[in-house]
């Protein structure tokens, strides 16, 4: 049993919660990755609505596969196909779906706090699939799973998160989760991309990737959102790549056992060079695989706990 009813943010998860999620995900690994019939009846008859109010491909498909593998009945609604575009309020949308008696909402939203708002309008369980610049807790869990698979543990690891931290829900949920598990987190970004208050995460902060890269066990590169370049937080792709990009030269300076992660989608040649994305240290595809396992674990633990 998790200590929370909903999965809204990683800051309300205990180390025990996170360990339960990762261990449960691990138990799904042989089913999903070794068997021919990749399915268990754990959530048969349960109804899950994937409410994706903002475009998403990988997170939505990861949830959909996880739901199928748990035998849940699920439907997916997008922002463009829902009545939200017709001006319906969030509360009305949720109450309308809720009237059809669903067990769980998986929510992706453009606006921070949307999943929390939804909990006020339904008795169903809510999983946050990413809300605005706030949190993306299921991404954090798959990241932790991937890192733990490689090192066997999380405590004491040195992790650099590099990129557009100010606009990043990935950083917002990953940094606190890593801290909860005893890792040491360093936030690397130009001053115009740094988080407003790094002390809240209890993280180290630097503007210089080259100063820290040799000490890191994990280098986690964030996608630089090209649409956010207007407003001139950075001058150009080229300059960003030169200062903060993970090049082969920088990769060569990493510790022998260190790994590289990225939440995707990547801008090859900007935050990460193409050769580095495909190198032996890269765990980027492992992360994608872990996404299905950990999302299965989260849905199973949150819904199964009610039986």
């Amino acid at each position: 049993m998790l200590s929370v009813k909903h999965l809204i943010d990683t800051t309300s998860l205990t180390a025990d919660d996170i360990t339960q999620i990762l261990d449960t995900a691990k138990s799904f690994d042989p089913i999903v990755n070794a068997r021919t019939i990749k399915k268990v009846p754990a959530l048969r008859g349960r109804t899950i609505v994937n409410l994706f109010l903002e475009p998403s491909t990988r997170t939505l498909k990861s949830f959909e596969l996880a739901e199928k593998r748990l035998s849940a009945d699920s439907i997916s609604m997008g922002g463009s196909t829902s009545s939200v575009v017709k001006g319906e309020s969030l509360a009305d949308t949720i109450q309308t779906i809720d009237a059809m008696n669903v067990d769980m909402f998986v929510v992706r939203a453009r606006l921070a706090g949307t999943p929390q708002k939804i909990t006020e309008n339904t008795d169903a369980i809510v999983i946050n699939g990413g809300d605005g610049k706030h949190q993306h807790p299921t991404q954090a869990m798959l990241d932790l799973y991937t890192i733990r698979e490689h090192f066997g543990h999380l405590d004491g690891l040195k992790v650099a998160i590099v990129g557009d931290l100010a606009h990043s829900r990935v950083c917002g949920s990953l940094a606190p989760a890593l801290k909860t598990m005893g890792a040491d987190v360093t936030l690397v970004a130009p001053p115009t991309f740094q988080v407003g208050d790094p002390s809240w995460f209890g993280c180290n902060q630097t503007n210089h990737l080259d100063d820290v890269i040799e000490d890191m066990d994990v280098v986690y590169m964030l996608r630089v959102q090209l649409e956010r370049m207007e407003g001139a937080a950075i001058p150009s792709r080229r300059e960003y790549n030169r200062l903060y990009g993970l090049s082969l030269e920088r990769e060569a300076r990493m510790k022998p056992n260190a790994i590289i992660c990225h939440p995707g989608p990547m801008n090859r040649g900007m935050e990460i060079d193409a050769e580095v994305a495909d190198c032996a240290r890269s765990r980027i595809l492992n992360q994608v695989n872990a996404g299905v396992l950990t999302r299965m674990a989260e849905m199973y633990l949150l819904l199964g706990g009610e039986e």
Binding site: A112, G113, R169, G196
Partner: peptide, 13 residues
Amino acid sequence: NSGRAATRLGMFG
């Protein structure tokens, strides 16, 4: 307000 509240709740300050 920018700073801790904006960071914690993930919104522009």
